[in-house]
Nucleic acid binder design. Structure first.
Lengths: 139, 139
DNA sequence: GATTTATACTTGATTGGTCAATTATTGTTG
DNA sequence: CAACAATAATTGACCAATCAAGTATAAATC
């Protein structure tokens, strides 16, 4: 059988790395009461100037389905990290708004996230980092 | 709030990339009747010179728990991609052996995997590939 | 050599997501 | 403007993996 190409190795190792990182971050963010997925949701909302997004848009950002987003946000609404808003122009959409509580939690959690990130990639050179980032973004 | 560091961006984008790649590979490998996880299991078994591994060792390779491996392998045993073997030296362990069917399927699936891999990373330079690979492996 | 401790699994209950179907609304077109 | 197609979101049924607990065996200690 042919040997694995670098491209094949890359996808396999990317996947394995993601699994490990996910677990590490889930453990760490768990101290703030959220999962990594929830952190990601907060992240994209926080990055939006209005801190409001449609569920579909959020799903797109997170790489998950609309139904996945519904299920992800339900518990977050219950603890008031986000809240629903109507879109006056289109009654189909249910906007997600980051609450003040949510924004604060995001900022707190971000310091943990920063620690984990920095220590995880501590021995990656700056130029490598930029190169990898560039590649990952266009995958 | 402080801006995200490159390290933070890297982890987020790594995660997003992994999600997309997983979906793409699940779709493609689905044509061979297996998921990406199952492909990975076959991969590590195939790479082993004896094509035999303990479940614990496989779990370690796959970055999942022992119970995850049990549940992953069950259906694979049913369709005879792998089979159980006893370890004469230690009655606790239940060895997983790649069958001929399993090896053949792995080889077939690998051509699909190769296509996807190559096209996915087609515009990544060789030197970048090696650099990224190096980083991912020590993560 | 008996007892404790550690290891290799397996299983029940739970979680986090998918998909397919459904509902409500909006946009399009004859 | 009536009918039909497309979009946003939710729900039920399912799937893949986790965790915690349980079982069986092996290793270490007294």
């Amino acid at each position: 059988m042919k040997k694995m190409s670098d491209a094949m190795s890359l996808l396999i190792n990317l996947n394995l790395a993601a699994i490990k990182i996910n677990k590490k971050l889930d453990r760490s963010l768990g101290l703030h009461g959220i999962s990594f997925s929830e952190y990601m949701a907060l992240h994209f909302l926080y990055s939006e100037s209005t801190q409001v997004m449609s569920r579909i848009a959020l799903a797109e950002c997170l790489g998950m389905t609309a139904s996945g987003v519904t299920r992800l946000l339900n518990p977050m609404e219950k603890i008031h990290l986000v809240e629903k808003q109507k879109n006056p122009r289109d009654a189909r959409v249910s906007l997600v708004k980051l609450t003040l509580t949510g924004a604060t939690l995001y900022e707190d959690a971000s310091t943990s996230f920063r620690h984990i990130s920095d220590s995880t990639v501590s021995d990656v050179r700056q130029y490598q980092m930029e190169s990898i980032l560039e590649v990952l973004k266009k995958l």
